[in-house]
Write a protein that binds this DNA or RNA. Structure first.
Lengths: 190, 190
DNA sequence: TTCATTTATTGACTTTTGTCAACATTATTT
DNA sequence: AAATAATGTTGACAAAAGTCAATAAATGAA
C-alpha cells in the first residue's frame, strides 16, 4: 500500500533504503466511508492525507449553507486544509471523503519530524510545494481569464476522469459556478 | 539598499554574518522606468525580483489584447513569472514595472546556487513558498465564493495602499472584473 | 427489487457583469 | 501652460450566470 506513495516521492528525491522505511512508516493507513467528514471547519488540521484510492474534497461553507470546493484530491495526490495544517490555525475549510477511500496519513508533528531528521526531505517538500503553488497559479489564471464554459472544457481535457466520476455538484462548485449552469454547459453545443 | 531584503529574509531564517553577505551579494540592484517590460510572454523567466520601491505586475494577455493581472508585487515582496522561472519554461505571463522601481534581482542559476550551498537556505525558500501558496489558495477562495463587490471590499480592507496607488484598470483586472464594473462598485453605496 | 433520497435537468425570471460608446477627468510630455 | 495621451465615469444594452421551482433520473439503503 505504501508502494504508490513511494513512487510518488521518488519523482522528487532519492533516499537510501533505510530512510525510505523511516519516512513511509510515518504514513499510517486509514480507510474512510463515503461522505465521511475528516475535518470540520473551525478545527485545526492535524493531518496531511495521501489518497491511495478514492477522493477527498476540501470545501468551504458559508452561513447560508452554500458550498464551494477549494480542491479535489484524487489517487496519487496529497491534500489537506493547507493553510490550517501549515500554520496550525483554525481551518476555514472542511475536508470530506467523497468516496470510500484508502488513505495514508501523516500528522503535523511527524511531518515536522521528517523535515528535521531526514536529509533531503526538506527538498522533497519544497519541490512538491512548488508544484502545488504552480497549480494554484494556473487555477487563478483560469478563474480570472476564462468564462465558465472555457473552464469546463479545460477541465474536461485535463482531467476527464474527474468529471466522469464525480457528482455534478462537486464539479460545479470546483469550477466556481452553480450546478444548473454546469448542467446547461454540458448540453450546449459549442 | 539590501537592508530591507535582509529584514524580509530574517523573518524566516537566521544566518551567520558571512553567509548573509554571500546571499545578499547575489541580489543585484536594478532600476526600472515606468511601464518598462521586464519579461515578455513566450520568453523564459530568468529572474526573481525583490521590490525595494515601486511595483511590478505579472499579467496575461490574450489574442484580443485583453489583459488580466495575475499578481501585483509591492515593496518588500518577491515576484516573477513563477511557473516559468521554476520550471524554466516559456512564460504565459509578462512582467511589467508599473512605476519607476528599485529592484534587487537574482538570476535562476544563482537562486539554485544558494539552495545548494547555503545551509538552511532551502528552509528559507520552503517557508516563503508556503506563504505564497497560502496566499494563492486564499485568492482562489475569494474568486470562487465572492462576488466582485465583496472581493473589492476585502482588497480595500487588506491592501488599501494598493487601491489608492494603482490605476483603476490594474486593480480591476487583478480582481478579475472589468474597469467599468470596478468604477460602478466604487460609487455604489452598500 | 423497491423505496427513499440524492442528484440532474429544464424553464422562467432576476441579478450581475461585460461591452461599446461618449464624454469627463487626470497625468505626461513638450 | 498647452497639447496629447491615458485613465475614469456613466449610460444603454447584451451576455453570462444565478436563483427558484418543478420534474426527471439516478443512486444507495433496506
Amino acid at each position: 500500500m505504501h508502494e504508490i506513495l513511494r513512487k510518488t516521492f521518488e519523482g522528487n528525491t532519492n533516499l537510501p533504503e533505510e530512510q525510505w522505511a523511516f519516512v513511509l512508516n510515518h504514513y499510517k493507513p486509514r480507510t474512510t466511508k463515503r461522505n465521511e467528514i475528516l475535518l470540520e471547519k473551525g478545527k485545526i488540521s492535524q493531518h496531511l492525507y495521501f489518497v491511495v484510492k478514492g477522493c477527498l474534497r476540501i470545501f468551504l461553507t458559508d452561513d447560508d449553507g452554500q458550498e464551494a470546493t477549494r480542491f479535489l484530491v484524487f489517487e496519487g495526490s496529497f491534500g489537506t486544509a493547507f493553510p490550517s495544517f501549515t500554520l496550525q490555525q483554525p481551518s476555514s475549510a472542511s475536508i470530506q471523503s467523497i468516496e470510500p477511500s484508502e488513505l495514508l496519513v501523516i500528522n503535523y508533528s511527524d511531518y515536522q519530524l521528517l523535515l528535521e531528521t531526514v536529509p533531503g526531505w526538506e527538498r522533497m517538500t519544497r519541490l512538491s510545494l512548488q508544484q502545488d503553488y504552480i497549480d494554484a497559479i494556473m487555477r487563478i489564471e483560469s478563474l480570472i481569464t476564462l468564462d465558465a464554459k472555457e473552464r469546463y472544457n479545460i477541465l474536461l481535457k485535463k482531467n476527464p476522469r474527474l468529471i466522469q466520476r464525480l457528482p455534478n455538484k462537486f464539479v460545479a462548485d470546483y469550477l466556481g459556478i452553480s450546478q444548473e449552469t454546469l448542467s446547461r454547459l454540458k448540453s450546449r453545443k459549442s
